[in-house]
Amino acid sequence: MSLSRSARSRFGALALPGLTLLGCVYLWGVTGDFRAVSGRYEAIGPEFFPRLLIGALAIMCLVQIARSLLRPAETTAEEADAAAASGSVDWRNLVTALAITGLYAASLHTVGFLIATPLFQAALLGIVFKTRRLVTLVLVPLLFTAAIAALFIGAMNAPLPRGRWLFGTFSRLFY
C-alpha cells in the first residue's frame, strides 16, 4: 500500500503543479461568467484580479514543471527530504479517515450532533487507530461529546445541528 519514494518525490515536482495547471484552465473558463451589471467598472472588472492570479499561477506551475524536467537531480534531492521525513504512506488508512469524517459531516444534518459525534469518534478510534480497548471505545466518545456539547452549546449557543425527525426530538431533550 505504500508508494515508492521516487513516485512520491515526483508528486510535488510534477503531479501537483500539473493538476494545478489543469485547475487554472478550468477556473479561467469560470471567470468568463463574471459580468458586472454596471458600466462604471469597465476598466477593471470583477474578472481582472482572478485572471491575473490564475495567469501567474499557471506560469509558476509551468516554471516548476520545467525545473523538474530540466534539472531532475536538483529537484528530486529537494523532494527526497520531504519524502524521507514522512516515511511510507498508508493510503487505505488515510482514505478511511477522510471518508469517516466526510460521512460524519454529511450525516450531521439528519442525525444531529449529539448522536453523530460519538459514533464518529468511536469509528475513528476503532477503525482508523485500531483501538481494541472497549473502555476507550465507549468512554472517550461519551466524555468528548459531552464536553464539546457543553462548551459549544451550553456556553456559546453555537448552532450545532439537531437532526431531523426522531433525532431532532432526541436532541431537543438536551438543547
Binding site: Y104, L124, I148, P159, P161
Partner: peptide, 25 residues
Amino acid sequence: PVLATGILSIAVAGSLAYGDTTAVM
C-alpha cells in the same frame, strides 16, 4: 488516537460554530 479524535471533533464543532455543515466540508 484519543487526542486526534478530540482535535478532529473540535475542528468539526468549531467549523459548525461558524455556519452549517458546509463549513465542515
